[in-house]
């Protein structure tokens, strides 16, 4: 982890952002893949923390504020020159929700590459303090995220092979 807020009203998150950026930049020589869980919201985009990533995943829930935030994230990431910006639908319960996310992405020219269904395994695992993958590897959300890993791998590899 690159930082943790330990007390209310003290400190700022400048260093954690800079550390994350430096790590992402350097780790590529040591690791095959680097996966970064960004700070919730948009600050990592205004600060350029994602400057060195190949792929930004924008997680969208099927409700207005989440979609609008996603759209802002897309604009900021495009300004930073992030080469691939993909949307991922999350906690999708119904076809109507799935369609709402798809429609929004189509209107905003967002490349939607996966839907992760709502899955009770995730909150159950969270309550137990364990990974959903260890609670139920067959669960729908776990399976969908495993498929997403494959999709990403294929897309990035296809781009590299094409160059």
């Amino acid at each position: 982890m690159t930082g943790r807020i330990e007390a209310a009203g003290v400190g700022c998150m400048c260093d954690p952002h800079a550390i994350a950026r430096g790590l992402i930049m350097r780790a590529h020589s040591e690791a095959d893949d680097v996966v970064t869980d960004m700070e919730a919201g948009l600050e990592h985009l205004s600060r350029g923390t994602v400057e060195y990533v190949d792929v930004l995943l924008i997680v969208l829930e099927p409700y207005y504020r989440s979609l609008e935030t996603g759209s802002r994230a897309q604009k900021l990431a495009a300004q930073l020159g992030v080469p691939r910006i993909y949307a991922v639908g999350s906690k999708v319960r119904t076809d109507a929700e799935r369609q709402a996310i798809a429609d929004f992405c189509a209107r905003h020219d967002l490349d939607l590459i996966a839907h992760i269904p709502y899955d009770e395994t995730v909150p159950k695992a969270d309550l137990l303090g364990i990974s959903p993958l260890d609670l139920n590897p067959q669960s729908l959300a776990v399976q969908a995220i495993q498929d997403l890993a494959q999709t990403l791998d294929h897309r990035v590899r296809a781009d590299h092979d094409g160059h």
Binding site: D32, D33, T49, V50, V59, A141
Partner: peptide
Amino acid sequence: MRVAVSGKGGSGKTTIAGLLARTLARTGRR
């Protein structure tokens, strides 16, 4: 590849990031 996962708090961002990392690691990648 270098992937960043972004989203609002509670969106499922951390679940997606964590399981992506584990899935990629299962194929023997660092």
